[in-house]
């Protein structure tokens, strides 16, 4: 995306403390619990909201924007309650998940309409700036009805940015974008976070999320399953079984030696076509394994070429948290 977003997030209030504070929030539909007793706070930067389909992510985002009233608990943005305080929307932008837009409007008219309704001082300039930010300048005078899914997604992002919000909530913003646009959107999200905005992004695309968000919130069955730096969460998983690839000389003999170690639950030899066989270790205690693998190799007079975690990724964190 172009680099014409405002260089710094606007300051709305003298609010100190978390930008977003969610306290013991629940949402019920009759007997069905969509969100259960969730508490978290967010500071400036990018946070990813993760969870399987139906976990309650969209419900959470809708409550954060005031579109849904929580059945219990309190939600504050910049220290103000989101329900009934329409002035707060000057500082909050939402990229909604739904695809329906106004097919009879051009991209430029849509952004101009949003800028007018946000009461920005120069809506035309704001619309133009947003069009440039999401790289829709050339297609700005085409009707939204003729846009591809990815272009509509960018128009929604543009509409959410038209008033330079301090808080940005994005529901699946990468959905429908092509690889290049996905890359640009990720760069834009990173840039928005670097500018000091609080950005919460719901996404299923874990590989991409890993590239723009250090912090994650994982919702499973309506409950907050994990929150924080995903690498820290990964570290907490070390006592759980983890898969590691080991390349060495004499892999079969080394595998026999490794299985004797207390930190190893299982080993197998992987023979890829055209490549030297490698050892796949399932460690019951990853940290203990990393400490002992070199010692075992030295004792057996084995040369180590590689010790690499196979699941040191957000996907593994997510799988671990969801499956717990």
């Amino acid at each position: 995306m172009a680099t014409s977003a405002a260089p710094t997030a606007p300051t709305s209030t003298e609010h100190q403390g978390p930008t977003i504070q969610v306290t013991q929030v629940s949402k019920f539909y009759g007997d069905v619990v969509a969100v259960s007793d969730i508490t978290f706070s967010l500071a400036p930067g990018v946070t990813a909201l993760l969870g399987p389909n139906g976990a309650g992510k969209s419900t959470m985002l809708e409550m954060l924007t005031g579109l849904l009233r929580p059945s219990a608990g309190k939600i504050e943005i910049l220290g103000r309650s989101v329900r009934g305080d329409r002035d707060l929307y000057r500082y909050v932008g939402l990229v909604p998940e739904q695809e329906h837009m106004y097919p009879f409007l051009t991209g430029r008219e849509f952004l101009y309409l949003n800028a007018v309704m946000q009461e920005v001082s120069d809506p035309e300039a704001a619309a133009q700036r947003s069009l440039e930010t999401v790289e829709l300048t050339e297609d700005g005078d085409r009707k939204l009805g003729g846009y591809s899914k990815g272009m509509r997604q960018r128009a929604k992002i543009g509409a959410a940015l038209v008033h330079d919000p301090q808080v940005l909530l994005m529901d699946e913003p990468l959905s429908g974008t092509d690889p290049l646009q996905r890359l640009r959107t990720i760069e834009l999200i990173q840039r928005l976070g670097d500018q000091g905005r609080t950005v919460l992004v719901s996404s299923h695309v874990l590989d991409e999320v890993e590239r723009f968000a250090d912090r994650i919130l994982v919702i499973v069955n309506g409950k907050l399953a994990a929150a924080g730096d995903f690498r820290a969460i990964r570290e907490r998983m070390d006592e759980q079984a983890s898969k590691i690839r080991v390349r060495s000389t004499e892999p079969r003999r080394f595998a026999s030696a490794l299985i004797q170690d207390d930190s190893v639950a299982a080993v197998s030899i992987v023979t890829d076509e055209g490549a030297e066989p490698s050892i796949r270790v399932e460690a019951s205690n990853v940290r203990a394994f990393y400490r002992s693998v070199a010692a075992v190799a030295a004792r057996e007079d084995i040369t180590l070429y590689e010790v690499a975690a196979l699941d040191d990724s957000l996907t593994s964190v997510f799988t671990y948290v969801v499956g717990r």
Partner: peptide, 10 residues
């Protein structure tokens, strides 16, 4: 659901 574009405005 296009009402979202109207109601999340000041």
């Amino acid at each position: 659901r296009t009402m979202v574009y109207l109601v999340i405005k000041p």
